[in-house]
Amino acid sequence: MKFKISQSYLEATARQRIGFIVDKGSFKEIAPPSEKPASPHLDMFNIPKSFGDGVIIGEAEINGRPVSILAQEGKFMGGAFGEVHSARITGLLRRSLNTKPDAVVCLWDSGGVRLQEANAGEIGVTEIMGAIFDLKATGIPVIAAVGGSCGCFGGAGIITGCCDYVIASEEARIGISGPEVIETTMGVDAFDSRDRALVWRTTGGKNRYLFGFVKELVENCPEEFRSAICSAMAKSFKYSLKNLEAMQEHLQERADKFGSMDNTFDIWKEMGFNSPEAIPEMTVAELKSTVQAGGEK
């Protein structure tokens, strides 16, 4: 097992992440902090604001190719979708319909809708989804990267699922209801949110990769995120009614096959892995070679 010492994508700020991904010196920020775009709602809750409302948007180049790029700051209010936050993202996506970049790169890191601005945030999430579908219809690929401490939950989980291609690290958790929400509503027997191993092997990047939701699994390393984004930019994505129907059928089969199981290990065993309990300890490279050697993907 060989580890390269690297910076951590997980611990980096949104601004650092953009620096990791784009060509040096190519990033042109739109509505930067100096314009002081911030939430009009947080004052009444006595909560500090942030210039940019927790998301950085702009245009840049990756390997010399033009992209639109956004990065959510997970450390500010859990990367949550507030009104201004969402409007900034929607604005960038809609602008991309005109500027027609080679790709729209979304560095998501969000627990979902910002509860203090819930209605505006919910509307924001639907507007972002709408703009993503418009981009897909135009043939501009929307690439998602998830590797922050918030992962992608709630509206962010849905938005991530709308993107053409999802790149994630094992550390990234992706889902709709977060572990604590499930525990609160279904009981601790259904899901123990304090059992970190359980939380990660259920919602973490590896399981999402094995289920095919995450298309490329990478280590928690900025260079790996960047090269995965470059590879994704070389792909083309096609949508048709036939594809959608096939996907629906696949999901039904999956539900029939795994629906009665309540443990990720049983699911992995059923997928064809002989020693599923070894999976959480594997590096990304080891997991991929195991998948190629016969485990179902």
Partner: peptide, 19 residues
């Protein structure tokens, strides 16, 4: 530079914008 922003608004932390 004309301006810079450093730090993140999270618990026990702050952002500083200088122009």
């Amino acid at each position: 530079l004309k301006s810079t922003v450093q730090g993140v608004v999270s618990s026990g932390n702050l952002e500083v914008l200088i122009e």
